[in-house]
Design a protein around this nucleic acid. Structure first.
Lengths: 362, 362
DNA sequence: ATGAAAGCGCTAACAT
DNA sequence: ATGTTAGCGCTTTCAT
């Protein structure tokens, strides 16, 4: 089968059309100047031969791959799913394809993913860094001048445009509401990997949304003259079962938390499930709120109070920022995306009768 | 800035290491035979120069891109989100990156996506065809001998391995349960595009899971001596608002349906929301069930009866089938993935007092 | 084990 | 407008 194995190349088309390879490339590639006559001859020849352009070869020549790399922690998470849609659609409209790298929030996989993308000469990167602490791989990208947009998580000291949803106000409202309702022991559950399963100030994660949420929580407590217990602020949960284990601990320890904040909707679902299994009523025995507002949040009982984020817009914004960079345009100003608190029914007054069996310290 | 703009190439490394380009390529690429001495000299030189391999150039040479294309309808849908994770992880472990194409269930975008992937010389395709009816683009791929796995939706007459979850038994159980509970008018809502918003046998979609679910429903009705009303079997819903509109129509028409089947979890969420807004109680006024079992299905009230599918496994299986094809191995047997019915609380007896204002025809 | 040289399929610079 | 000739950065014979 002679005409089967090898690809039909521009040279083949050129021969058939009776013009030079260069002219054929111009006709097919839609660049340069080419007469109508030649154009149609070439197109016809290409058609007859079943020519398929080789984008890789083109990229080697031009130095542009028309692909971007998107590195995220978990496609399964609705937060990333929805933002991926925003990015993917925006990039496609601009003529770029998306190489999706799912790291499972693993630092090592993230490093490898970026290396692989760089080898494939993607024209730009969108990265939601999994790790909080050290980012030589990202600094390397920036230093090499590669277009880079940070998504959902900032990297301090790195000069890269970043798309962040501003949750400070909503977050503060949320904790304010909780404190006003009498809650004194708040729990927080997140998947963020920061080297420890318990929060502490030394982790220096204030630049991440998760960190900010925690800071907001602590601040609200302090305003009320209260102190946060790091033991109840949990990081690095892996998967639903781990979340449930953590929730169980927080809700049944000697001094159980009276309110629980889930850092994303997957966590909230697992938490709700575990609380049910423990026989705890929400918000009677324990209050629950979550960041992110999936379609089902209002449908569970009780309907979940959430901090709703413009996730789709965030994805679109990230793509736009990167496109501007890749085009060498002036860096777009980071969008202002603000989260808002949606009070539904999962927050109630703190149960005063629980964990009151010891003398208050102050 | 002389050393800045142009990439460091193998030639540069070769010069520095004092060996030929060929040998350098071998040392760096890990193929061929190369002495330890040369190897370390080359690696050192590469390190010093900050050499980054150019995967595109390599691909042009080898004819393999180490990338696969995945074409799906909607990343936002948890079904695809979870299966994407399975695919993505499996491909990564095998050394392949994933180009993700989100078509928004548009036929045209699907065709373009596949063309774009083919230009980029992906080594294989996983496609969840958006359209039901004609597949020249897929037949073209198969005819050209390109590795192809169909995901979640089959294409009749196409010789390509296909990953399908077998829902027949669960589906039959489901409709059996409904009929036994006295339901006579069943509604079905799906996003499948088949050229019409109402189902009819001429659509010939029995090869798709959606089609099979519908067929199962009709069969169960027939067994009970009943006939399905095509007016209540809706296809091509676009987005939550459209779903709600359809649900409203089905639930409030002259002869309202007494049970509703949602073809995925996103549809179920929108339906539940609409039913609530209509003031209809589930399952008191209307029963509801859905395909797919997202983490929240058991948490809404009432807990949703679902047909649960092994989605992650389906993704993994698709990747494995494609890997085997790409390696030129014997085609793997398609996996047997079976859905199961999880009865929770959203199905109840048909309300006998509604829509009974006319004389029964038989 | 190593090197010279040809080749992958395309674009780009320079002619004419 | 068209053709010629060099590239792009890598792999792959084929010698030695």
């Amino acid at each position: 089968m002679p005409p089967s194995r090898r690809d039909v190349t521009i040279a083949d088309v050129a021969r058939r059309a009776g013009v030079s390879r260069a002219q054929t490339a111009r006709a097919l590639g839609g660049y340069g100047a080419v007469s109508d006559a030649v154009h149609s001859r070439v197109v016809a020849a290409a058609e007859e031969l079943g020519y398929r352009a080789n984008g890789l070869a083109r990229s080697v020549s031009t130095g542009r791959s028309q692909s971007v790399g998107v590195v995220i922690g978990d496609v399964e998470n609705p937060f990333f799913g929805l933002s991926m849609r925003g990015m993917s659609d925006t990039f496609r409209e601009a003529g770029y394809d998306v190489l999706l790298m799912n790291t499972g929030e693993s630092a090592q996989l993230e490093v490898e993913a970026i290396r692989s993308l760089d080898r494939k000469r993607v024209d730009g990167f969108v990265v939601a860094p999994a790790i909080a602490g050290a980012w030589p791989h990202l600094e390397g990208l920036a230093a090499a001048g590669r277009p880079l947009v940070l998504f959902d998580r900032a990297v301090p000291g790195l000069d890269a445009s970043t798309v962040l949803v501003d949750v400070s106000r909503a977050s503060q409202q949320l904790t304010g509401t909780l404190v006003a309702a009498g809650h004194r022991r708040l729990g927080f559950v997140s998947t963020l990997r920061a080297g420890s399963s318990r929060w502490s100030p030394e982790l220096r994660i204030s630049h991440t949304p998760v960190g900010r949420r925690i800071d907001g929580m602590i601040a609200a407590l302090q305003e009320a003259g209260l102190e946060a217990d790091p033991e109840t602020i949990r990081l690095g949960a892996r998967g639903a079962d781990d979340v449930r284990r953590i929730v169980r601990d927080l809700a049944t320890r000697a001094e159980p938390v009276t309110a629980l904040l889930a850092s994303d909707s997957l966590i909230a679902a697992a938490a709700l499930e575990e609380l049910r299994e423990l026989g705890l009523s929400v918000p009677g025995d324990i209050s629950l709120a979550t960041f992110d507002d999936p379609p089902w949040a209002g449908l569970v009982s009780p309907p979940l109070t959430v901090v709703s984020q413009p996730v789709l817009d965030a994805g679109i914004a990230a793509a736009r920022l990167l496109l501007a960079q890749m085009r060498g345009e002036a860096p777009l100003p980071p969008p202002h995306l603000e989260a808002r608190l949606l009070e539904r029914g999962s927050i109630g007054p703190a149960p005063s009768w629980r964990g009151r069996d010891r003398a208050p310290g102050d």
